[in-house]
């Protein structure tokens, strides 16, 4: 029971990751594949962030001494490093998603379809 309560976050995230993975490998539509990659990606972000969370912790932003005059006490901060990694990864992720979608637009112009199997058939015929 303690194991379940302690690890449930990973299991939920693994479920989300695997559903995204399923969309990537099972669907033939290219846009759907990109959607699946996006879902997978967000799940991985969540996996990293759950590792940085600490019990009773707070956001890793400290009150500035020049603005905040009260006593902040001695708070525990959640780990800031996962936030840093994921912050950059999100924006890089959308840039690469845009590249993938641009490729899909060009594929549609060249083949007239964005279904994987139809593209393969056209490739074999030519």
């Amino acid at each position: 029971m303690t194991t379940m309560l302690g690890l449930y976050n990973y299991w939920i995230v693994i479920f989300l990751m695997m559903t995204g993975f399923y969309v990537v490998i099972a669907q033939g539509n290219l846009v759907k594949k990109v959607i699946g990659l996006n879902l997978f990606q967000i799940s991985v972000f969540l996996l990293y962030l759950t590792m940085g969370k600490v019990d009773g912790g707070t956001t890793p932003i400290q009150p500035d001494k020049s603005f905040f005059s009260g006593d902040p006490g001695n708070p525990i901060y959640s780990h800031p490093l996962p936030s840093v990694l994921i912050l950059t990864a999100i924006v890089v992720g959308v840039a690469t998603t845009a590249l993938a979608l641009a490729l899909i637009v060009r594929i549609h112009e060249a083949y007239g379809t964005i279904e994987e199997d139809e593209i393969l058939v056209q490739d074999r015929e030519s």
Binding site: T59, I61, L87, T88, I90, V91, V94
Partner: peptide
Amino acid sequence: PGGGFQAGV
């Protein structure tokens, strides 16, 4: 909270 990545978007 904030920075170049969020602000740019």
